[in-house]
C-alpha cells in the first residue's frame, strides 16, 4: 500500500475474450499442479444469453478488504513487490475473505479449504502468457484506462 511503485495487475479486456477457459486451466496448473478450473484463481463468468464471457480475477485493491476481514491475518501482501500471499497454515477456511471480496475474486480450495487469491505468479502471470485472444494484459492499471479514453475519443471523432 502506498509504496510508490506502480504495480502491474492483470487487466481484463472483456470484448476480446473468446471464452476458451485457457486462463483457468493454466492458472490451476501453475497454482495447484492439475488442470481443474476449480483450483483457478481467475474465473470465467459466462453470459450465455449474450454470448459473452468475462474473466474475473483479483484487481489488487490498495486497501484489500480480504486482508482486513481475515481474523487470523493469513492474507498478506509483500509491501515491496505487492504480491499477495495466503498463509495456508494459518488460514482457517472461514470464508470471510471470499464473502467480503466485492469482486468474487477469492475462492476456497475445494480440498484444503483454504483461501485462493491471485499472486500474479510471482510477477509473470501464466494466464496472461497463455491467453490466445489477448484478453488479459499484465500492465499498470492506468494503461487500460488510457486505452478506453482513446477509444472513446475515436468514437466521438467518427460522428
Amino acid at each position: 500500500m502506498g509504496s510508490g511503485v506502480i504495480k502491474k495487475i492483470v487487466n481484463v479486456i472483456p470484448e476480446a475474450c473468446t471464452g476458451c477457459r485457457q486462463c483457468e486451466l493454466i492458472c490451476s496448473f501453475e497454482q495447484g499442479g492439475s488442470y481443474s478450473p476449480r483450483l483457478s484463481r481467475i474465473r470465467l463468468v459466462k453470459f450465455e444469453d449474450k454470448c459473452l464471457s468475462v474473466p474475473v480475477t483479483c484487481t489488487y485493491c490498495e486497501r484489500p478488504i480480504c486482508e482486513e476481514v481475515c481474523p487470523v491475518g493469513a492474507m498478506t501482501h509483500d509491501p515491496v513487490t505487492g504480491a499477495a500471499k495466503v498463509n495456508e497454515e494459518s488460514c482457517r477456511g472461514c470464508k470471510e475473505c471470499a464473502n467480503a471480496c466485492p469482486l468474487g475474486a477469492i475462492d476456497m480450495h475445494p480440498e484444503k479449504g483454504t483461501a485462493m487469491r491471485c499472486d500474479l505468479c510471482g510477477g509473470d502471470p501464466a494466464c496472461v502468457k497463455y491467453c490466445p485472444a489477448g484478453a488479459l494484459k499484465y500492465e499498470p492499471p492506468h494503461h487500460s484506462v488510457k486505452e478506453k479514453r482513446r477509444s472513446r475519443v475515436v468514437a466521438l471523432n467518427l460522428d
Partner: peptide, 30 residues
C-alpha cells in the same frame, strides 16, 4: 460451493460487460 463469491463474481462480470456495451461496443458497431 463459494455461494457469495460466485454471486459477487457474476455481478462484477456483469459490470465489466456493461462497460463494454456502452463504450467499446458502440465504437465497433459504428
Amino acid at each position: 460451493n463459494n455461494g457469495a463469491a460466485a454471486i459477487q463474481r457474476r455481478e462484477r462480470a456483469a459490470l465489466l460487460q456493461k462497460g463494454l456495451s456502452l463504450g467499446a461496443a458502440r465504437y465497433v458497431n459504428r
